[in-house]
């Protein structure tokens, strides 16, 4: 066992974990942050996407120990019903959400893109979203939602 410190959604945590624990499991089972989803467990689907120190990663491929000392944003740290993030608003308005299992990861990839570049090109949007699979929507509305959010974010 080892101690790690994480700053998750601006809240500090000190945790005693097994070095082999994945960040995904620590977030879900130790911190109860169930918004981060496991779709494949092998880096293919992006449902487990979180932002670590300003970068999106697949939390199913990261050990919690590797994130020691990092700042982490999960979907629970992005917007709420009173003040949704522009990406969240756009996803709802455009109809980019169907079953919703891919949605937290999608929102985080889109948010991270817009944090870095408020007016991305269509190509940049496609690339930024290319690590997130959706089996329901067919992507068109997802890309449109990100575009809309980038226009509204202004």
């Amino acid at each position: 066992m080892m101690d790690i410190k994480l700053m998750v959604n601006n809240k500090p945590y000190t945790l005693n974990i097994e070095p082999s624990e994945r960040l995904l499991d620590v977030l879900r089972t130790r911190l109860g942050l169930m918004g981060t989803k496991e779709g494949c467990g092998e880096g293919e689907c992006g449902a487990c996407t979180v932002i670590v120190d300003g970068k999106t990663v697949n939390s199913c491929l990261v050990l919690a120990a590797q994130a020691n000392g990092s700042e982490i944003t999960t979907i629970e740290g992005v917007g709420n019903r009173r003040k949704p993030h522009p990406v969240q608003k756009a996803f709802v308005e455009v109809g980019a959400v169907q079953c919703g299992f891919c949605t937290p990861g999608m929102v985080l990839s889109a948010k991270n893109l817009l944090d870095k570049k408020s007016k991305p090109s269509d190509d940049e949007i496609s690339v930024a979203m290319s690590g997130n699979l959706c089996r329901c929507t067919g992507y068109d509305k997802i890309l449109r939602a990100v575009k809309l959010a980038s226009q509204e974010g202004n």
Binding site: K55, V57, L61, V62, S109, G131
Partner: peptide, 9 residues
């Protein structure tokens, strides 16, 4: 290579 998430890691 990979995806944005994979490339970040």
């Amino acid at each position: 290579m990979g995806s944005p998430q994979i490339r970040n890691q």
